Amino acid sequence: MALHITLLLTCAFFSEALALKCFGCSGPSGVCTNTVTCPSRCGSMTTNIYSYGRKIDSNSTRTCADPYLCVNGSMNSGQSKVTFNSQCCNAELCNIQNAPDLSQQPLNGKQCFTCNATDCSKTLACEGDETQCFITTVDIDGKKVTRKGCTSKLFCGTNATQSLGLQAGFGVYMKCCEGNLCNAAQSLRVYFVMLVLLVPLLSLFVF
């Protein structure tokens, strides 16, 4: 009996020690009073969606975060662009602020094909850690439209995208490849399915 009590107290102690209180909010406001109990890390992530260089949607989330979600990156088709920026920490209520927008990244020397209507012979200069080229199919007014561009490896089959079903508005059956202008062909490896339009921000972190 004494051994059982000792084990129970030990488990209770370590469960409390490993638990971390974090802010839990979603939205643009910097004021957050809601809290959640997290296993190890607090996090915040800000997502922006751009169309022809103009920001058309932005959202931020603060809650628990798994280590593999503490990432940032971007995906750019020329016409549309999605950026993610996250910040993670492991102190009590350390995610007091929203993560800032991902800053403008310098050109990295890589190029990928991009599409303008049905013309996919144009090239796009990649930025920051956009080390992959991609091809995806978008359904616009009932028609299948091909889009190509540059993307961070984050969107090409990592734990974050595969296990959480990341959605970013670039269509379905996204395919990635490495190498300069490697997205000329259609026979690239399919990494995962991207659905439509907006990012479910809350699903990027684990409550």
Rank of each mutant, 00 (worst) to 15 (best):
Y191G: 11
K148V: 03
N72T: 06
N180K: 12
I56G: 01
V71K: 10
C120T: 09
I5Q: 13
S187A: 14
R62V: 06
A17Y: 06
N90W: 05
D57W: 13
A184W: 04
A19L: 06
K110S: 08
L8C: 12
C32K: 07
F205R: 06
R189C: 07
D101G: 06
M45T: 05
S40I: 10
C150F: 00
Y68M: 14
T6D: 13
C176E: 01
F192C: 14
L107K: 15
G30T: 15
S86F: 03
C38W: 05
L166A: 05
L188P: 05
L154S: 03
G73E: 00
P28Q: 12
P100Y: 01
V193F: 13
C94I: 05
Q97Y: 15
Q167L: 11
S152R: 01
K143Y: 11
R41Y: 14
L195V: 11
S163Q: 08
V172Q: 15
V199C: 14
T37E: 13
G78M: 08
Q111K: 11
S121M: 14
A99Q: 08
A65G: 08
N48W: 04
V31A: 09
A2N: 13
L7N: 09
V193E: 14
N159G: 12
A125N: 15
G179Q: 03
P67D: 02
N116W: 00
C115Y: 01
K143H: 13
P200D: 04
A184G: 10
E130W: 01
T35A: 10
G43T: 01
M1F: 14
T37F: 03
C94N: 09
C150T: 02
L198W: 12
G169N: 08
A160G: 08
K153E: 12
R147F: 12
T33F: 09
Q97L: 15
P100E: 08
L181I: 02
V193W: 09
G179C: 01
F23L: 09
L188V: 10
N59F: 02
E92F: 06
I140N: 11
A91F: 10
I56Y: 04
F205W: 05
P67A: 04
S26Q: 08
I49Q: 05
L204K: 00
Y173L: 15
E178S: 04
I56H: 04
N180Q: 11
T46G: 00
N98C: 12
T158A: 01
S121G: 12
Q111F: 06
M75F: 08
L154I: 02
F207S: 08
K122H: 12
N180P: 05
